[in-house]
Design a protein around this nucleic acid. Structure first.
Lengths: 245, 245
DNA sequence: TGCATTTCGAGTACGGCGTACGCGATTGGA
DNA sequence: TCCAATCGCGTACGCCGTACTCGAAATGCA
């Protein structure tokens, strides 16, 4: 297979400005992406099949392939489209902690609106909207004398936390929706009986403590997210040269 | 659907000790899991279909369903089986930084041996082997006066980093295998042309700097992993009360 | 104006997936 | 010996992504 076939969707713009002969396009990537996102929001990513998207547009599955090479590429488009919902100021405010918090909370909010995002396996290709967020986060850490690689590393740390925390949160939401158990109940009734005597016998003492002493399970989702985020931001603060925390 | 059907594979032990009438089992979860892991290691997770696993065992797909309720459950079994390859001492050494580094590097090594792990969408259910690693990591931070929730938060931070870094690393490996480009080449030839004049015009100045000044792309994978890990561990050190760093 | 050329919309079909279902074969206990 | 429970496994169904194909529509030009 040639390398060109591996190139991301962003390198293959749809021919939106045509002047030659031939029928005019009746759909568009943007419209298809929008419909796909709506379906995935309502019924999950696996419901956004090519047939279903086509049906929602009043056509068949194959018509979509005039605009999108593969379904995987459409998913990249969907991801970047939702990244476009992240609202940031044009430039960071100068308060790095507030700026990074903004990115974190905005990202979380968008992901909670589009829970299918966390069910993705592939690391998404970076589209223009994601690039905008990435650049904002990086520039929040600019001006402290850090090397660019350090900023990348620290921003990545926060990004990893946010992605993971949101995946957890949505996982619990869906779990609760299916079983009616809340997080703590699930932890004790589901994991508990399995490790059973092992936990009680002290083989997993720390896990045992998370169940008995841990308060994270009791916290509201907002507070739990903030709790972890604070630790991450404290870690970033520790990397700033002259304690601009 | 009942809640019982949602219960993880760990709550549904296979009937390994039978004495009543009926044919004796010819296979086992362990054997099926092992074969599935071998196939996934060689050809990727999507190649480990039920039909293919059955074929490798000299039978059909449906025979496996006597031992595993669903393919998703089998994947949970595969994950925990590989987590069993993580080699840790019985108890942490007392040097928290060395202990957490051990967990991080062991986890990375195992994931590199089983690259299909990072292509997973669902957050895995925690099996016994994962629990063992989790408990080891937590206990490495015990004894510094931290609340258990803080330990969970800090360990989670490191776990998030490791998972993300390994996913990246494997992603690049497969990219390189397909296209013959290394990481830096890909960054400039693939992302570069797309943002094109935008990058040059200064709309994404920080991203621009990661391309021009960044050295992360040039580092060997081991060093890159360690670079990020050091930042995470520094962040954890900052959370220890009396600077036990 | 009429035609040649090009693109679009859409139907058909293929191979592969997970897995529901059912049935003969095998086994231990009464 | 016969019964009842369990296993191995083949068949079949309804999905999926998408390769291929062809008529319809829309221009630029003669």
């Amino acid at each position: 297979m040639s390398a060109a076939e591996q190139i991301s969707i962003w390198m293959r713009p749809e021919n939106v400005e045509r002047s030659g002969p031939g029928r005019r396009p009746g759909y568009s990537r943007a419209r298809i992406t929008q419909v796909a996102v709506e379906i995935a929001d309502r019924e999950g990513l696996e419901a956004a099949t090519m047939r279903r998207i086509g049906q929602e547009l009043g056509t068949g599955a194959m018509s979509l392939y005039r605009y999108v090479p593969k379904r995987d590429d459409l998913i990249d488009l969907m991801l970047d489209a939702t990244a476009g919902e992240i609202e940031l100021a044009g430039r960071p405010s100068g308060d790095w902690r507030a700026d990074l918090s903004l990115v974190a909370h905005q990202t979380r909010a968008v992901s909670l609106r589009h829970p299918w995002q966390v069910t993705l396996a592939r690391r998404p290709t970076i589209g223009p909207n994601m690039l905008r967020v990435y650049d904002f986060a990086l520039s929040a850490l600019d001006g402290f004398g850090l090397h660019i690689d350090e900023m990348v590393s620290l921003c990545g740390m926060m990004g990893d936390y946010v992605a993971s925390a949101v995946r957890d949160e949505i996982g619990w939401l869906e779990q609760a929706r299916h079983t009616g158990m809340d997080r703590r109940q699930w932890m004790s009734e589901y994991v508990g009986p399995y490790v059973g005597q092992i936990v009680e016998s002290g083989a997993y003492p720390m896990f045992n403590r998370t169940i008995r002493e841990g308060r994270l399970s009791h916290m509201a989702p907002d507070a739990r997210f903030q709790y972890g985020l604070d630790h991450v931001l404290n870690g970033i603060a520790a990397a700033l040269p002259d304690r601009n925390a």
